[in-house]
Amino acid sequence: MNEDKIQHYGDALYDAWRERRTIAPLLEQEPDITLADAYRIQLRYIERRVAAGESIVGKKIGVTSKPVQDFLGVFQPDFGQLTSGMVYQEGDTIDLGSLIQPKAEAELAFVLKEDLQGPGVTAMDVIRATDYVLPCFEIVDSRITDWKIKIQDTVADNASCGVYVLGKTKGDPRKLDITLAGMVLEKNGEIFSTGVGAAVQGSPANAVAWLANTLGELGIPFKAGEVILSGSQSALVPVVDGDELVCTVGGLGSCRVKFAGRSAA
């Protein structure tokens, strides 16, 4: 795909994000988009956000569970960029007016204390380079109408990232069984779904290693201090005004978040 088209679709996604509206699936407009094209479109969309004042603070890993991979017909995860405008802290109320068609996912976040440079990164390197892990929510959102996404659509749309919320309880992955830690997601005081770390690529550390190696092939390092959302361990939860969610990671702790207002779609 030529650079003009890459820019065109990246700009279209940026405009849709800024104006809180959706656009038709990119594959409907352009059936020949490859995965590599989709990542170039994502880069353009994020460059626009950075040019408007945000900075890149980390990465998110998506499509990490087998059911989602089967649904999208792919055999590996995808990734997107976390920017400074997406960050919420535990206890904050998320303004749904800033989002289009949000859904929440409970995840484990990694914060690195050393750079990780792929290729050749293993899960053991990930644990070694990790400062701490946190319970967190990613609020995914799609700039594509009615979430009618194929893998190229979601990758171009920054892996459908919306905003994210980090918990306050820091865990040392050397003291915690991140593979077998349970994940309990409660919505308005009732259990919505349960899961376990192993649902993410066998272990969340495997997902982070995959990303380090994938970025390594693109010549992008993983930097100390970056936040990595390692992939969903829960069902997708639609959220509306007044909802409160709590996710609890076994042996670690909880992250709590409230929602107010109305999303665009």
Binding site: K66, L180, A198
Partner: peptide, 14 residues
């Protein structure tokens, strides 16, 4: 007990 995680593997696959 509520947050204890469990994984079932059959023939090496989760």
């Amino acid at each position: 007990l509520p947050t204890l995680g469990v994984v079932m593997e059959k023939n090496g696959e989760t």
